[in-house]
């Protein structure tokens, strides 16, 4: 298998109010890596992912996503990444407006999102005019997952996406992830490693802003 690097993070340092929240983090991600990222609360997992997505200006080191700098070329970087945040955002747009936003900004037909949602037994067509934040917690999560999958990205970043899902929905989600039929990578932040066992082929453990363990499984 050829080694196509999607993400190269070298000696990344990020400080918040003096504290080194990312302390010399180096992580390379190749196409095909399915990473389970773990670590205690406050370890810096979300901060790493956000730096990769261009939300934070890092204090030292370098991050490249397919060769692009996430700050200087955020559009190029984000074209290839699907992201689901740690908490479902209370977006006030209606479902149809949100899908319009996704369609226009990320060239993802709303119809494809609806299809992905159906695969998770979410009949979103009946909720189109509802504000997104008024959906139930699980429905929100399912829709976010549907959007992420519909974008057909090379890299999926999931920050604990299954918190609100019932066991059945969780299984659906894992099956969908498993069935993605083109080369891609995943970063799956989770506190329950046994859940992503069958999905992950690499395990990264962070603590106190450092990568303390990085192994292929």
């Amino acid at each position: 298998m050829e080694h196509v690097k999607i993400v190269e993070a070298r000696h990344v340092v990020k400080r918040f109010m003096g504290a080194r929240v990312l302390d010399d983090v180096s992580i390379d991600i190749e196409l095909g890596d399915k990473i389970a990222m773990m670590g205690p609360n406050g370890a810096g997992k979300t901060t790493f992912v956000r730096s990769m997505l261009g939300f934070y200006h890092i204090d030292d080191g370098e991050i490249r996503v397919e060769g692009y700098d996430p700050i200087k070329s955020r559009v190029e970087v984000l074209k290839n990444i699907s992201f689901i945040p740690q908490l479902p955002p209370p977006v006030k747009l209606s479902v149809s407006e949100l899908l319009g936003y996704v369609q226009r900004s990320a060239d993802t037909p709303a119809q494809r999102v609806i299809g992905e949602a159906e695969a998770m037994e979410l009949d979103i067509k009946r909720q189109m005019e509802k504000p997104f934040f008024k959906l139930s917690g699980g429905m929100k999560q399912k829709l976010l997952i549907a959007i992420a999958l519909a974008r057909k990205s090379k890299l999926f970043v999931f920050d604990e996406p299954t918190a609100n899902l019932d066991p059945k929905a969780r299984d659906h989600f894992y099956r969908l992830l498993f069935n993605i039929d083109y080369p891609h990578s995943t970063i799956f932040i989770t506190h329950r490693v046994e859940e992503v066992e069958g999905l992950a082929n690499r395990k990264i453990y962070m603590d106190l802003g450092k990568v303390v363990e990085d192994e292929r499984i």
């Binding site: 956000r50 559009v75 990444i81 992201f83 209370p90 977006v91 006030k92 996704v102 990320a106």
Partner: peptide, 15 residues
Amino acid sequence: ESNVLEYMLSFPISL
């Protein structure tokens, strides 16, 4: 504060 900005800006859209 509610992560709406985070989510909306995770799409390929320029600042």
